[in-house]
Simulated assay, not measured.
Amino acid sequence: MPYLTAVVALLSVMCLLTLVLTLGVIRRLREHTKLMDALYEAIDLMGGPPGPRGALGAGELVGEFDATTMDGDRVTRELLPEGAVVAFLSADCGGCRDQLPEIASWAAAQERRQVVAVLDARSGDPEELVTALSPVARMIVGDDVPAVGKAFGVQAFPTFYQVSAGGRLLAVEGRISRLRVGSPA
């Protein structure tokens, strides 16, 4: 019987030690995640390289494009109103789906003509994005998407561009909440 008690005590100590070590690893991973987020934030604030969001940066002129929205409206670089936001989203983008409630809420607080959502639906089902955004944004889906993406130099999804009248970029961001326009969500 003393042998069995010693084994149980040893196993209890080992389990407790394992639990303490696991909690330490989790705490360390959380600290690491915060540091990585801070690093990415610092890179964004410093302007970073022309990527990862887009090949064009603030101050540059968007390339020529001519597209038609789902409502039949024509959209070109010259027809974008002052301060318009052009959101590039993809149907198979997890980050796009994660930000969808925030994007829809933000866009609902803007004039619909000020928000253009360009949706790459080649590799996924766009229904969720179209349903959420078509009431609050002009939607470009289909054959025009590659040309519009090329004009803006899109390299990642989601990417949000704020443009001046005539198509000069005012800001390029990976989150809608980072744009300094309109009413925040």
Rank of each mutant, 00 (worst) to 15 (best):
G167I: 00
V20K: 08
D37A: 02
V154H: 04
V85K: 01
D92W: 09
A109R: 08
V25A: 08
T159M: 03
P101K: 03
L29Q: 13
A132Q: 05
Y40F: 11
A151W: 01
P81N: 01
L19H: 10
Q114E: 13
P2R: 08
A171G: 11
D125E: 03
V141F: 04
F88C: 04
L89H: 01
R27M: 14
V148G: 05
E60G: 13
V145Q: 11
A185D: 09
T69V: 05
L45R: 15
A87P: 05
L170R: 13
G63K: 00
R53N: 14
C93P: 12
G72M: 00
D71Q: 01
A147N: 10
D125G: 02
L169Q: 07
F88A: 14
P49T: 10
G63L: 01
A109K: 09
A109W: 05
Q114K: 12
A9L: 08
R112A: 12
Q114Y: 09
F65T: 00
P184N: 02
V118S: 15
L21M: 09
P2N: 05
G182I: 01
V116K: 05
D144G: 09
L129N: 02
I176G: 02
M70K: 06
V20P: 06
A185K: 06
E102P: 14
K34F: 07
V116G: 06
A42L: 11
L129S: 04
